[in-house]
Structures are given as C-alpha cells and as structure tokens.
Simulated assay, not measured.
Amino acid sequence: MGRGGRLVVGLSLSAKPWRTLRWLVLAPHPDDETLGAGALIAQTAKAGRLAGVVYLTDGSGSHETMPGRSGTLVSSRKREAATAFHHLTGNRNQPPVHLDWQDASPVPPGHPAFDRAARRLTALCRRWQVDALAVTARHEPHCDHEAAAKLAYAVGKRIKGRLVIAEYVVWALPPTSSSHRELRTAPMLRGQRRHALAAHRSQLTASHGPGFRLPATRRAMPASDILYLRRAS
C-alpha cells in the first residue's frame, strides 16, 4: 500500500533498469531526506548505488534566532543531517553536501546564486556518475521545495537528457497518474526511518526554543517510498 492507503501498481526500484542506476537525493532542508526519500536512500546505499545527499538550504528559518546567532542552529541541523544519513545508510564515510541557501529565501532561475548552484550540482552529478536525481515535487507548497525541483530540472537540462529526474512528496498530495508514472522502493527495515527522523531533534522538540515542530501525524511514515516520474508531454 502507498501513502494514504492507496494500492500502488507501478515500476519497482528493484527491477531493471532502475536497480542499476546511481542515485543522488536533493533535499530542500535537513529532515526532508528522511520524510520523503528515506527508503530510497536506504535501498540504494545497501546496493552501492547511492551517490549521496545534497541539501539546498541551511535550515536557519525553522526557528527564531537573535541577529547574528543563526550559526548555532545551522550547525545543529548539519549535525542532525549527518546522523540521520548514518542511520539511513550505515555509513559515515561520505557526509552530506550543503549548498547553504538561506532557508525560506529561494532565488529564482537566472539569478547568479541559482546558476552557481546549478553548476555545482551538475559538476557533482558528473563527478559521481549520477544517473538519477530525486527531488521534492514541483507542486510542493513550500517555496524551498519548489526551488529544489526547479534546480534539479535545470541540472537535467545541463546534462542534456542523460539524467532521470524523479520527484518525491513531503507535504503535497501525490501527482496524478496522467502526469506521472510511479516508481516504488523496497520496504525499509522496521524502525530505521523512525530512528533517522529522531536525529532531527531541532524539528521534533523545543531544543532550540519556539519554532517549527513536525506534526505528530507526520511522524508515522510508510516503509516504502513512491517516486514520481514525469510523463513526456
């Protein structure tokens, strides 16, 4: 069963050609990797097909901080991301990459900062021989999630069609079958995603004072992920 109890009939990440691809995950914020792509990360890491995880923003917008004091929150969220990545992969040898955009202040395509990020991400894809890039869906309601999708598709254009772009949802409803095909991962080990999410203490507790707190309803996560492949128009 998929999210919302839907019966999922579609492609399987365990089948050819999907199981032979090398994957990179682009997450808007630390915790989105676990919420939206944790099973993808776990499965591809186990198979030796995970290139890495890249975070778009510094996570500084989740809590109120005194002027000039956001560095403590940013450092905490990066440590949490590294711990969550370890829980998902069992590996500390390749830490996540951070592009360090300011949280909740995305820049549009054509802006110099957007172009720099696109060039850097393109270079990483080429260096790590990435075949597929997983990113939050273009219709996600958060501005950083939408920006991450725009960045991923910009990288896809730079690599000229040789990169599969797969979308995952965190806050949005799944896209329709008329616009996307579904690609399903294998189930995760019991408790693995929960342990990874627990690493993001700043998003679950009042450890950094008033600010974002992940709703309890979102902490019950499925064992598998569904990725969405945009159909050719």
Rank of each mutant, 00 (worst) to 15 (best):
A152N: 11
T20C: 03
S76G: 14
S178P: 01
L21W: 08
A123Y: 04
A113K: 03
W101H: 11
P96M: 01
E33S: 05
G61W: 09
V135Y: 06
T83D: 11
V97H: 09
G90P: 02
G191H: 06
A220F: 08
A42Q: 03
H200Y: 12
A51H: 00
P210H: 06
G10F: 01
V135K: 13
P187C: 03
L99V: 08
M221L: 09
T122K: 12
L56K: 13
P174Q: 03
V97G: 04
T20P: 03
D225H: 05
W18R: 03
I226W: 05
A47Q: 09
A113T: 05
V135G: 09
A206Q: 14
T57N: 05
H200G: 00
D225C: 01
P175Y: 07
G156M: 12
A39W: 15
S177R: 14
W23K: 15
D131L: 05
T89W: 15
L88N: 03
R193F: 01
V8Y: 07
P67M: 02
A51N: 00
V164P: 13
T122E: 14
D31T: 04
A206K: 14
R138I: 15
A15E: 11
G191F: 04
G156N: 14
A152S: 11
A45K: 11
H87V: 14
A216M: 06
V54T: 08
Y228Q: 01
A81W: 10
V130C: 06
Q192T: 11
L99H: 11
I226H: 05
A117C: 11
A152Y: 13
G52S: 10
